[in-house]
Design a protein around this nucleic acid. Structure first.
Length: 1049
RNA sequence: GGGCCAGUAGCUCAGUUGGUUAGAGCGCACGCCUGAUAAGCGUGAGGGCGGCAGUUCGAAUCUGCCCUGGCCCA
């Protein structure tokens, strides 16, 4: 019935076997069929970017997703199992550009937008297929034929519906702003995408002179790290309340922040300090006033006050170029200043900038400095290290550009906040984080001047009119031209661009704006688009809000979580999900961020085939998700040893013995009341573990359960099995109810344990189940994952028993420690142990498991008492350094008197409230606990230890009998090793032969021959010359030569 | 400048509603045990819980301020 089990689990090859097994049997389909009428549990998958193979960090989130789905499946819940792929957006474009060797948008235009978009789709298909295969390898059970793609028509049109709703409320607008711009990608970078954009770089820092127009030789010293923006200077800003110094140097007068005078080169003469407010309003000459483009600004150069100015860096006087900086731009509104915009979308100067025209902004530092020097405006320059934003996809340093983009006015953020509050955030501070973002975010920039993405359904007329189309049907109805060209294509560029509608104001035919959409629109709509919102509203309302969403949280508060919340608020004003479980980042073994470039990134496939996915999943589930996870093979190895080897060994032990014994798990159960205490202890612990599992899975805190599971398997192996082994070894006997109870207890515990952890490690548990569960009962479900999740049986829980067992293990480990300290090996039997405790529960526990303890500790007898006082003696030594100064010459008399007294009385006396009264030299002296040093003295023959809850004393006196028995046990041990070396079966009988020159040893063997034979399954034990010993061992200093052969052979 | 999270042995982390002598794993050394275990167990060295000040009979746990690191926002 049970298959024999190898001693090594061989995890990785077996995982492939299990995958095959599931596939061949259609196990996942069976599961869905089984649960099809069950109560709904709704998980909603966050789309993975289908742009690269998976790294181990993807596996973390996916392990959670699978794990919770598997738990709920075993609870009988109906689920959707839909995986998602994120398809559209700049990240795909950038990779395709790399593949094709493109550098600019021009390359794409020349190649053809249609072809380029096809390439993007192709890349998505390729990597979604790879990720699918990898996920299957992880054991991630999903409806893989039915994954959603954010590039689908359904998804795109549902976003149109969302935008239409926004437009109906008047929230869509075209705005003008200065924003971060990637000159390589030729697109603005929205606030959402500025996450992790800042990187340290070295830029030129320049201090230049701006001549004041009011007098001669007076200059503002102005600082900038972006020399290219100087050609668009409009104003200078000072902090009105900061102090500025007026200084003279080489016949010129300079103004700069008082705390910035260290910027001055060489000697200078201090003239006076004045507040910034006195500089405000002064007019000056700009550094590039000769340029035609500065014509308007030329007449407006003025010093303005701005409280953001700091004197921590630079000169305390800031150059303002409203067309080149966000804050500058805002200031220009405040002060009604012009905003010349010098760059085109590639970051190149437009006409009107003299020698700069046609040059890339990042390349003009030398030209700018040269020009300043020529004009006598240069003061100093040097390298400056600061953190500067970069394009999050191509790493190009961003520029700031004045542009027109489409926005959603987010003035309705309070509505979103209200929805966010209805979600349960794990960890709880996720809500605060989200609310903070919602408070601080600006309007949502939804346009991008790119090619591969959502086609914004905005049609804009020259006359200023625009409208938003809400569906494919609406587009068809309103199409004035180009519908035929578009029909049959997905709503992507370039085909959708062919459609024109009529301007409702001036009647002209107008096209769609050429922009594509922000990719977070794509992912944010999935709670609608993928759940049949448009086609089956009843179905949709059954599954949304989803019960669970789980993702890695850094970044997602402003991206996916935000987009889902905002879009769901607009669509139906409901939370899109009920619980959000966030987890931190995967780091390398040393806590460093994993980077492809640093070479410390681990690809999923490598990890899967090197550590195995069960182990990987265990590592993920064991970790507290709020902390970053340091992932590496070392941690995997540890988990493997600690958990999987232990589990496997218990399994192998049970299966192999059960096979020999013909144990039948379907036999009638021995009632719990008739089983041994240790059995009932294990079953009680098992119920507690089941309870814990339900609590933690239900609460999405799987790591708490996994930690407890580790403790359980440890107790199962290293206490229950170790303590119960002999019950399994007894000869086959149908009437042996105790043996049956042991089998049943171990069998139930192991198989229940496997079911409990099956969602975490679905492979190894499946193998164990196939042997133990299915092998024993062919009518059982064909997979462990088709079983019901175990339910706790409260009647089996016995808290007192647990407490008793705790006392027992503590006493055992204290006694073993004593043996170790005294160098008395455990195989050497000892005559007596005394356990003393004032706690009656401890005494009860020790009494209850007396036999177990004696066996475990190899001691003949045990005495249990309340205190060890009667076996201990005390030694008392007066502390003369205290008594001397206090008692003077009486001190020595007190000491003498003390030595006459009973040390035990002294010991207890000094602890009394009044102290101990000692009569010496005719006077009474009171001694307190500090006056004497009391030591407990253990009698020579006792080794003692005092613990918090109990004391123990071990009699280490050895009689000849004990020594002889110890020798016999040593011999047994050597024979067992010999059996193992000879690769005998566990139930093979042997004929044993030994030889020794030591008569003590020889007589020990003879005296204990019965015992030795019984322990080693020897049918014969003879002394005789052993010419070719299979083992030569030393016992108590004497040599013994051993040989054996299988009986009957 | 504001907010969130974290700061416990060499490293990685546990420490429930404040309660006696703060735990575990890894690593190192030594020892023990082994008819399931190329496994396991024990011991030792090593920290007084970022700092200071409070509350309390009692604080790693609560309060305040500060320091360091990470993240977010400005």
């Amino acid at each position: 019935m049970f298959e024999p089990v190898a001693t090594q689990p061989n995890l990785i090859p077996s995982e492939h076997d299990v995958l095959k097994f599931w596939q061949q049997n259609g196990t996942f389909d069976t599961l869905r069929e089984k649960n099809k009428n069950g109560p709904v549990w709704s998980f909603l998958d966050g789309p993975i970017t289908a742009n690269n193979p998976m790294g181990v960090h993807h596996a973390w989130g996916r392990t959670y997703k699978d794990c919770f789905q598997r738990y709920h499946a075993m609870m009988g819940h109906r689920q959707r199992y839909q995986n998602g792929f994120d398809c559209q957006g700049l990240w795909v474009e950038v990779e395709v550009e790399k593949e094709l060797g493109f550098n600019t948008k021009k390359d794409i235009e020349q190649y053809g937008v249609g072809e380029f978009v096809e390439k993007c789709k192709e890349r998505v298909r390729k990597y979604s297929a790879i990720q699918t295969q990898q996920s299957i390898r992880l054991g991630y059970w999903m409806d893989w034929g039915n994954s959603y793609y954010t590039m689908s028509d359904e998804n795109n049109y549902t976003i149109w519906a969302f935008l239409k709703k926004c437009h109906d409320r008047g929230l869509v607008y075209k705005g003008a702003d200065v924003m971060p711009w990637c000159p390589r990608c030729g697109t603005g970078i929205s606030q959402h995408e500025m996450h992790e954009a800042y990187r340290e770089i070295t830029d030129p820092s320049v201090v230049l002179k701006m001549p004041l127009r009011r007098g001669t030789n007076e200059f503002l010293l102005v600082w900038t790290t972006t020399p290219w923006t100087l050609a668009a200077n409009v104003a200078c800003a000072v902090h009105p309340k900061l102090l500025y110094s007026k200084v003279e140097q080489k016949g010129e007068t300079y103004y700069l922040g008082r705390n910035c005078v260290s910027q001055l080169q060489g000697e200078f003469k201090f003239v006076e300090d004045l507040p910034g407010s006195e500089l405000v309003g002064l007019e000056y000459d700009g550094p590039f006033d000769e340029l035609p483009a500065e014509a308007e600004a030329r007449n407006r150069h003025v010093v303005i006050g701005w409280k953001q100015v700091s004197e921590d860096e630079g000169t305390g006087i800031v150059h303002i170029a409203p067309g080149c900086g966000k804050e500058d731009f805002d200031l220009s509104h405040e002060h009604d200043l012009p905003a010349p915009a010098p760059l085109n979308e590639s970051g190149v100067y437009i006409e009107g900038y003299g020698v700069l025209t046609g040059k890339f902004a990042g390349d003009v530092t030398d030209a700018v400095l040269h020009s300043l020097k020529e004009k006598g405006l240069f003061y100093t320059a040097g390298p400056y290290v600061h953190s500067y934003p970069h394009c999050w996809r191509c790493r190009t340093p961003l520029l700031f550009r004045y542009v027109h983009e489409w926005y959603i006015d987010m003035s309705w953020r309070e509505e979103i906040k209200e929805v966010a509050r209805q979600v349960r955030w794990i960890p709880e501070w996720g809500l605060e984080r989200e609310l903070e973002w919602l408070d601080n975010m600006r309007d949502w920039m939804i346009s991008k001047k790119r090619y591969w993405g959502l086609a914004l359904p905005i049609f804009e007329c020259e006359c200023g009119w625009f409208d938003v189309i809400g569906s494919k049907e609406e587009l068809r109805e309103r199409a004035a031209a180009g519908w035929e060209e578009f029909e049959g294509h997905s709503p992507h560029r370039p085909h959708v661009d062919a459609v024109r509608i009529k301007c409702e104001k001036c009647g002209r035919e107008v096209s769609r704006v050429s922009d594509v959409g922000n990719p977070w629109l794509d992912a944010g709509i999935v709670t609608y688009s993928t759940v049949k919102y448009n086609t089956d509203r009843e179905y949709w309302s059954k599954w949304i809000p989803a019960d669970l969403v789980t993702e890695c949280f850094p970044g997602q508060f402003r991206n996916w979580f935000y987009a889902m919340l905002a879009m769901s608020t607009m669509m139906e004003n409901i939370p899109p999900f009920k619980t959000l479980l966030g987890h931190a980042l995967v780091r390398d073994e040393n806590g460093q961020p994993m980077h492809k470039s640093a070479g410390n990134a681990i690809w999923f496939e490598d990890a899967a085939e090197k550590m195995g996915v069960d182990v990987m999943r265990w590592v993920f589930c064991r970790h507290n998700p709020v902390n970053n996870l340091n992932f590496g093979y070392k941690a995997g190895k540890e988990g493997e040893r600690k958990v999987f080897n232990t589990l496997w060994n218990v399994f192998a032990f049970l299966a192999n013995y059960a096979r020999l014994d013909g144990f039948d798990p379907t036999e009638e159960q021995v009632p719990a009341a008739e089983r041994q205490d240790i059995d009932r202890w294990l079953l009680s612990d098992l119920q507690l573990l089941i309870k814990r599992a339900h609590a933690e899975f239900g609460n999405y805190q799987v790591h708490g359960f996994v930690e407890q599971a580790e403790n359980f398997i440890d107790g199962l192996s290293n206490w229950y099995v170790r303590r119960s082994r002999r019950r399994f070894w007894r000869t086959k006997d149908k009437a042996d109810r105790d043996k049956l109870a042991a089998y049943q207890t171990l069998y139930t515990s192991l198989i229940t344990f496997c079911k409990l952890i099956a969602p975490v490690c679905p492979f190894v548990t499946e193998r164990i189940y196939q042997n133990l569960g299915r092998g024993a009962a062919p009518e059982a479900p064909e997979s462990i994952h088709l079983c019901e999740y175990p339910r706790p049986d409260d009647s089996l829980i016995d808290q007192t028993l647990s407490k008793h067992m705790d006392s027992v293990t503590e006493v055992a480990s204290a006694a073993l420690r004593l043996r170790s300290a005294r160098q008395v090996r455990v195989r050497q039997p000892l005559s007596e142990i005394i356990v003393a405790s004032a706690d009656s529960e401890v005494r009860a526990g020790v009494q209850r498991f007396k036999a177990q303890l004696l066996d475990e500790l190899n001691v003949k007898s045990m005495t249990i008492k309340e205190t060890l006082d009667d076996v201990l003696s005390y030694s008392v030594r007066p502390d003369m350094s205290r008594l001397g100064p206090r008692l003077g010459k009486d001190a020595s008399k007190v000491a003498a008197a003390l030595s006459e007294m009973d040390p035990a009385e002294v010991a207890s006396g000094v602890k009394q409230p009044g102290g101990l009264t000692v009569l010496a030299g005719g006077e009474e002296h009171r001694l307190g606990a500090d006056d004497v040093a009391v030591e407990r003295v253990w009698p020579e023959h006792l080794a003692g230890a005092e613990e918090a809850a109990f004391s123990i004393a071990l009699n280490t006196e050895l009689t000849q009998n004990l020594i002889t028995e110890g020798m016999a046990r040593d011999v047994v041990r050597h024979v067992q090793q010999l059996r193992k070396d000879a690769e005998l079966e566990m139930n093979d009988r042997i004929r044993l032969r030994f030889d020794t020159n030591d008569e003590r040893l020889a007589s020990a063997v003879t005296t204990w021959a019965g015992y030795i034979k019984e322990e080693t399954l020897a049918v014969a034990l003879d002394r005789g010359s052993v010419d070719q010993p299979q083992r030569v061992a030393t016992v108590e200093g004497a040599e013994i030569r051993l040989s054996l052969r299988r009986a009957g052979s």
